[in-house]
């Protein structure tokens, strides 16, 4: 399963809910405002670092760059472009956390 999260953790608790529900081996892709969670110093970054052993974590690089956060990406999360997003969606069934 690919979980697509598009909300900043400051706005909604989608990411927490997603991390709580996602089963081992699932993929989580952070897009739009959710990319803030994968940046150094963000309170949610520690949760992602904790989850990296059981989940595959990705962030959409164009959205990270659009927010000026590209140089603050944490090591636990892999950056992908839209092509990578498509590959992930092709590989897994998709669940958007709106």
């Amino acid at each position: 399963m690919l979980h697509i999260v598009n909300k900043s953790p400051q706005e909604k608790n989608c990411l927490d809910a997603c991390l709580g529900v996602a089963t081992d081996g699932a993929a989580v892709l952070l897009i739009e405002d959710a990319v803030y969670a994968a940046t150094t110093g963000h309170p949610a970054a520690a949760k992602l670092e904790q989850a990296q052993s059981r989940l595959k974590l990705y962030v959409l690089r164009p959205d990270l760059e659009a927010r000026g956060m590209a140089d603050r990406l944490i090591a636990a999360v892999t950056a992908v472009d839209y092509g990578g997003f498509v590959d992930l969606a092709a590989e897994h069934t998709c669940q958007s956390w709106l």
Partner: peptide, 19 residues
């Protein structure tokens, strides 16, 4: 909201990959 842009860019990337 960004979703209309995200959806369009996803469609474009999918088509470019032959989907």
């Amino acid at each position: 909201h960004q979703s209309a842009d995200s959806a369009y860019l996803f469609c474009k990337a999918a088509l470019e990959k032959g989907h």
